[in-house]
Design a protein around this nucleic acid. Structure first.
Lengths: 186, 186
DNA sequence: AAATTTATGTCAGCCATATTGACGTATCTT
DNA sequence: AAGATACGTCAATATGGCTGACATAAATTT
């Protein structure tokens, strides 16, 4: 019976479990490595911002709202709901905090006066810029590890990882910018 | 004052907010695009598994536990806590469910009988394999969009995005496997 | 003009997942 | 024998999701 020594290292990820494994699952063609790399990379990536947000008494939800409002000034509440894929009740709480504490302001729409267009204040931009700075530092460090063309390869990969069907308006903007027919196309 | 038309498209992401922006934040060298691509890519990537997990009454936490137990058979509870970066109280609940429902089994350590070594059962492997299959399909699709060498570039980028200091044992295994001195090194 | 739809906000409650602190027990180490 | 370690558990709390219901103002349709 597999008696593995756990004092130091683990068995190679592909070693067998003692009980045997279900033969039903495909085992050779699964991208286990990239799945795990994505987990760890994203964990540490958002960790940068999370630590800083604690200081302000905010969570990841606040960051996401502030980020997209900053990046797409005049965003409507409905659009934010599409992007974040949460309910308006959930959004309401964090949005109210950001409004109350002066990180975001609302502005009644000119075409449609029902709309509350959202804008980041200077205070909000300062915070979101600080957070983006932390995350940019990590990205910059990572890009140094690969060839110069690698940056565009990474962008293409990440874009292709995103659901292309039924994109909301923000996502459409992102996908359109240097989209499918970019420079480094094969 | 910026009167933006919201009926169709958004302004380019770099357009100015109406109130002006804090000049204190650096604005030219921030990797806004990659920050957003990571957000959307990860959102859809984990979404694949999330949908399937709902069927089983499980959440993302169950997936992570099952994944790492499957990949690193004989994982200790303490190691799992290191990897997932949660408290043992949080882990306790999901782990208990997975044990009760037969996705994972415990085995007392041979060297140290205090340890509860964790292994995925056939049932557990079937589930984690199914989930990995969904995520692999997305990754495979994405890799088709880039040059063949691009896959290794993506791995290098993701590895470099991970905190290299103080890696736990699982992470050490991952980083060691085809680590810093891999083939496609510049 | 009246009816309907849309955009937004809010109240009330529920659930999953995380947290901290305290304590208990078995086992290994010194 | 004493202390440290690995794990489990009880209790209380916070955050960030959720659903359902309802209200208001403004736009749109009839």
């Amino acid at each position: 019976m597999a008696d593995i020594n756990f004092s130091g290292t683990y068995p190679a990820p592909d070693s067998r479990a003692p009980e045997g494994r279900s033969g039903a699952v495909r085992s050779g063609d699964l991208h286990w490595d990239i799945i795990e790399l994505l987990f760890f990379a994203y964990r540490d990536f958002v960790g940068d911002a999370d630590h800083e947000l604690e200081v302000f008494g905010f969570g990841r939800a606040h960051h996401r709202v502030l980020h997209f409002v900053h990046r797409y000034p005049g965003l409507k509440v409905a659009d934010l709901l599409d992007v974040l894929r949460i309910t308006k009740q959930s959004l309401g709480r964090v949005l109210k905090q950001l409004l109350d504490e002066g990180y975001i302001v609302q502005k009644t729409g000119n075409n449609d006066r029902r709309q509350r267009l959202l804008f980041a204040t200077a205070k909000g931009e300062a915070l979101v810029g600080k957070l983006a700075g932390l995350q940019t530092d990590r990205i910059t460090r990572a890009l140094r590890e690969i060839r110069p063309e690698g940056a565009e390869t990474v962008r293409q990969f990440l874009r292709a990882m995103i659901d292309q069907d039924d994109p909301d308006k923000v996502l459409e903007t992102i996908l359109r910018t240097a989209g499918p027919n970019s420079k480094e196309r094969a």
